[in-house]
Design a protein around this nucleic acid. Structure first.
Lengths: 147, 147
DNA sequence: GTTAGTGCAAATCGTTTGCACGGTT
DNA sequence: AACCGTGCAAACGATTTGCACTAAC
């Protein structure tokens, strides 16, 4: 699903770190890799668990996951969506733009892309003299399984 | 600002409560009134403070505010917006649904409503077997004045 | 009188922070 | 060697829950 390969991703990460006088650590790589290798949206705890499961010898702390995700988000390498007052989920920012359907019962998250909506958004921005830079849309509801 | 008057609002609330075998209490009325009398978006704590300020003799608990806001939101009488993982803000659901254009320079906020987008959202939800309950859309950009 | 609602305090959940130690540069 | 990053546990802020008591029906 991803358009760039892992080495390229890591190279970009290393550049980002170097540019900010930050260090390239095992933990940071594992967090980025977990996002690369798993498709979907993950809470910090999800990522923490993936890393612990796949690296039983490594004693990673959840605080490190939070710190690194914050860093990655700030730099634009990952995106997040927030749920009510319930926390955030993260995904690698490699994919084409899309919006989300969220099930308020089970938290299931479905991506969609709709050309009509994208186009209307641009028109609306233009109508109001806005230069559109970003946009987000979320549909909350109850998924087929939970109804 | 509101389109229906207070008595009407309370009457609707009482009907809602009766239909669900729930009781009409002083606390519940005060919470709804706080939202009615104050325009804007409020955290549960904001509402708690408003009520305490205006009713010093009443010992309302914040848990009651949370419980009532949950009830009101579920029934559609109030809407909420969430901020990151930082909590929710509530507003009385009397205004027509709208989305927002936000200027990232000056913070200007413009409301808009677009029939085409509304319709497509419903279609998309239906396509995925979702029962749509709510949706939100925000366009970030630079407004005409700031360009 | 029955049932639901309340305030309170404790519990919970996601997240952040202080600190001494360990790894990267 | 200098400095940043880490794990850990404690701290935190928002929200929820258990419970004995009170109010609405």
């Amino acid at each position: 699903m991803s358009m760039i390969d892992y080495d390229e991703l890591i190279a970009g990460f290393k550049t980002l770190l170097k540019d900010n006088n930050l260090k390239f650590t095992t933990q940071r790589e594992l967090i980025l890799r977990a996002l690369y290798e798993n498709e979907g949206h993950f809470t910090p705890e999800d990522i923490y668990n993936i890393i612990k499961r796949e690296n039983p010898r490594l004693n990673i702390g959840i605080a490190t996951v939070y710190r690194t995700l914050g860093l990655l988000e700030e730099s634009g390498m990952v995106n997040s969506i927030s749920f009510d007052a319930k926390g955030k989920k993260y995904e690698l920012g490699l994919k084409k733009h899309h919006d989300h359907l969220v099930c308020i019962r089970c938290g299931r998250l479905i991506e969609f892309f709709d050309e009509t909506i994208e186009k209307r958004q641009e028109e609306i921005a233009a109508q109001h003299g806005f230069k559109m830079l970003d946009h987000s849309m979320t549909i909350d509801g109850i998924c087929s399984k939970c109804q």
